[in-house]
């Protein structure tokens, strides 16, 4: 623990450390509350809902056009006979993706975000009113195509899968560290195009991912020629097995990269107040 950032402050010594002297009728209140606590609260609610229905929820994120929907189409084709799958689609406009998923014979609900660049826990919660969860094994949430904002919002899902298509370049994990740090699995898509690209190296992409202290597995695939899909299906099935085993132990699954610093520094749940002026104490 260090003295630089304040992470040596524990719940025990916090009141002593954080107390500041009042000046001119000004009260300083130490809060240390996560600013996204409202979203996180809703996310936990969603997760409890998913767990009650025993459905593994995967948050699929990538830049626009990396092949999220194509991956889902190929996945559904392979798994629709053995698993019950549904999809929540997030897009700024159009129901194109939902129609593509529905054409595969599985339920899909479109969240149109308008101008918002990401899904949040409340949007997903609203979508759940339109989608029956009972009997489902697997729910995909296809997030808005964006490598920035979706990474900051917990939706209540269990796993983060991030796609990187070969045309985007192998340095994307270094350019978008917040997103790729959150990946439980990185998929390299459109590998059928590799013969035409001399500047994409899967090894470099993996190294850039590992530089984020993320040891998530990497699977290369092409939805077009089907290469690599077996490995992806195996990963999905092992995740479902692991998730069901956790549920039996009354536990749930969470994306592997939790907000570690956040958890160390912010107080969970409701904030506590340490008023420093007598006036505030009287009112408390």
């Amino acid at each position: 623990m260090c003295n630089t950032c304040g992470c040596n402050i524990t719940p025990g010594n916090r009141p002593l450390v954080m107390a500041e002297k009042p000046k001119n009728g000004v009260t300083t209140v130490s809060v240390l509350q996560n600013l996204l606590s409202k979203n996180n609260h809703q996310a936990e609610h969603n997760r409890a809902h998913f767990d009650a229905q025993k459905v593994l929820v995967i948050n699929l994120m990538s830049s626009p056009g990396s092949g999220k929907t194509a991956l889902l189409e190929a996945t559904i084709k392979r798994l629709r006979d053995s698993l019950k799958i549904a999809v929540i689609e997030g897009d700024l406009e159009t129901e194109n993706d939902t129609k593509r998923i529905q054409a595969q014979g599985v339920p899909a609900y479109q969240i149109m975000t308008g101008t918002a660049c990401h899904l949040d826990a409340h949007l997903v919660h609203n979508a759940l009113h339109h989608l029956a969860l009972d009997g489902l094994d697997l729910l995909f949430i296809e997030n808005v195509g964006n490598l920035v904002c979706p990474a900051s919002f917990d939706l209540g899902h269990h796993r983060n899968v991030v796609l990187l298509s070969v045309t985007e370049g192998d340095d994307k994990p270094a350019k978008y560290p917040v997103m790729f740090r959150a990946a439980d699995l990185m998929l390299i898509s459109k590998t059928d195009l590799l013969p035409y690209l001399d500047d994409f190296s899967a090894i470099n992409a993996e190294q850039n991912l590992h530089n984020l202290a993320n040891d998530a597995p990497v699977i290369e695939f092409s939805a077009k020629d089907g290469n690599g899909l077996d490995a992806w299906i195996t990963w999905l099935q092992s995740e479902i097995t692991a998730y069901k085993a956790l549920l039996l132990k009354q536990q749930t699954q969470r994306p592997k990269i939790q907000q570690d610093g956040q958890l160390l520094h912010a107080q969970p749940g409701n904030s506590k107040f340490y008023p420093v002026s007598n006036k505030a104490k009287v009112h408390k």
Partner: peptide
């Protein structure tokens, strides 16, 4: 985010991903 000492990737983030409301100063 590798360890700057040994280069290992098995590291735990101590600080850097926060979005915290730290303090509020109020006039009573």
């Amino acid at each position: 985010l590798l360890c700057q000492n040994c280069g290992g990737y098995n590291t735990k983030l101590l600080s850097g991903d926060e979005l915290i409301l730290a303090r509020v100063e109020l006039e009573n």
